[in-house]
Design a protein around this nucleic acid. Structure first.
Lengths: 336, 336
DNA sequence: CTGTTAGCGCTTTCAC
DNA sequence: GTGAAAGCGCTAACAG
């Protein structure tokens, strides 16, 4: 396109060397005030911007981070990105986005392709904990990484998560308190500690209250929507649960539709609680009680810690954090 | 962090020059087959990745594009990004994300900061058409840009939009066909052609049917949610409309709540149609009839065209596109 | 206080 | 078919 304005342009114009310009722009103590002023003025006038290729080639820092997530068009992740971007902006960092579509092959390809100095660090929410353990174990040695939400439990890196276990534990307990006798569970993310903890919380709450716990009451997520719908329908027809915990939003919706088809009154016949970051949840009818994660804050925390690492260079002690989810009670499960 | 694997590494190992490695990796006809094989094998083994700083410094292309949008945590924009990312991935491009929070100062700062060769092109959905006309007029001369959804009407650049005028025209007509006699409008984006066309469609449909058109029936978006709520409440109390067209999702929600507070039955007392990309709209009660834009496709189209421009180098004729929105009819406005 | 110089990793003539 | 050399824009060590 257009010829770029470089330090050379400024140097020539001002009859100084590029080194002087470089230092002046960095406000180095080595440069005289007068020169600095002249350089700054001209730089501003010409709208000079540092060429990132030049400086990162030289200095090994790109002022860029990558965010790798399963899916962008998802309330949780888009809020998290929002948080990340806000922190990045404050520190003049740039944010690259990559979506894996839950495919760990793609995930590995992305991370590998980022080891060439394109970014200074990575924020990642992984798609599976089973298929690429070794890969990540190596990766964390090569580039600063912070895991968020969906993390590798047994890898030594900073992790920002929410209290998955407690969330479902409390939610299940809430349903029990509401009088539910038979609580089903819609299972997803079971290849991740996130998912395992969630189902464990459900499990433990049931056991503690001597409630029925059987795999018959668990429906596992399938990538085919129609299959999910039918599985849930079968569950409801066969076992007639009076409560449901859904580990992801995408399973609560078909559950809702099934009830509609079967003419079940949701708060009365079946109480549903789901993980969800829908900003419209209160508009749902019967309004859905949700376990809502602080997605925005998770993004902000994860980014903040990554930048801390990037700036200190030195190894951080395990600064991992567990943020609290909120059980937002609504009509569907209110006890009265 | 770790020492990077560079062409030098490969060259040394294989006793060839870096020039040969570079050419081999590009599958140049100049290089013998045997050498190529060796280079490729070693590159793979060492997980060599091209250093983007080096090559973009040299070649002036970064294989990176920027996406500038008002807000990430928004169903429309996150879907658009999803589309953009998918196309970018196919062509091995990287995607930088920037959110302006509807602030055109920030917007200008972003675009300026991208003129230093950090990206090859920009996809943007602007925040205002009034405050920085001159800025964008200059910008399009300096870097390839494709505008999407919220565009500069009178700037010579490719634009991907939806049929804003027709959307509201048809929606309004639909309400009229349903028997509405007094249709209000919730106005937003009025500093953009997008918003102007939307209100114009509403206006024209009313006029064509000799319906009441008065600014009293228009409530303008305010950044303060409480103000919106009150304005809508006043509108409804004072003018008792039987239909509402909302130009953005964020105004339909308070409208819904107002009805709840006033004990208005939405399909019966007041029919609401809103622009919305909520994937849960069918769950709303009373289910909301929506004007739904093909956000994902807009993202894909915009990205595709940008890449076309980037690859041809030569100026494109005006390949702007207008995609169709869909009026998804639901209980709240069904005629019977 | 300022300039010279070298080199980050890569590509591209131009020789051989 | 391969290599030497120059240079993209920047920074830092070192001279002066």
């Amino acid at each position: 396109m257009k010829r770029l304005v470089t330090m050379k342009t400024i140097a020539k114009e001002l009859n100084v060397s590029t080194a002087t310009v470089s230092k002046a722009l960095q406000d180095s103590y080595e440069i005289g005030n007068e020169t600095k002023q002249k350089v700054w003025a001209l730089a501003k006038q010409l709208k000079y911007e540092l060429n990132p290729a030049g400086s990162s080639l030289r200095g090994q820092k790109t002022k860029t981070i990558a965010v790798i997530i399963p899916e962008i068009a998802n309330n949780f992740f888009s809020l998290a990105i929002k948080g990340i971007e806000e922190i990045a902006r404050r520190l003049d960092y740039h944010v690259l986005i990559y979506q894996t579509h839950e495919n760990s092959e793609i995930e590995m390809a992305f991370t590998d392709s980022l080891l060439n100095g394109r970014v200074d660090g990575i924020l990642i929410s992984i798609s599976s904990e089973t298929s690429n353990n070794e890969h990540f174990r190596e990766l964390v040695k090569k580039i600063p990484i912070v895991f968020f939400d969906r993390v590798y439990e047994d890898i030594d890196a900073v992790k920002i998560t929410t209290d998955d276990y407690l969330s479902t534990y409390n939610a299940t307990k809430h349903l029990i308190d509401c009088g539910c006798k038979k609580i089903a569970y819609l299972l997803a993310l079971d290849n991740l500690s996130t998912g395992k903890k969630r189902v464990q919380g459900y499990h433990d709450a049931l056991k503690e209250h001597n409630m029925l716990y059987t795999s018959d009451l668990i429906v596992k997520y399938d990538t085919d929507e129609a299959v999910n719908y039918n599985n849930i329908k079968n569950l409801i027809l066969t076992h007639k649960p009076d409560g449901v915990i859904s580990s992801i939003e995408d399973l609560a919706l078909p559950c809702y539709y099934v009830c509609k088809e079967l003419n079940l009154n949701i708060p009365k016949d079946l109480k549903i609680i789901s993980f969800s970051n829908l900003n419209t949840a209160p508009l749902l009818n019967p309004s859905l009680t949700t376990i809502t994660q602080p997605a925005f804050e998770i993004g902000k925390e994860a980014a903040s810690i990554l930048f801390k690492i990037l700036h200190n260079k030195h190894v951080e002690p395990n600064e991992s954090m567990i943020l609290e989810s909120e059980l937002i009670k609504r009509d569907s499960t209110s006890c009265n």
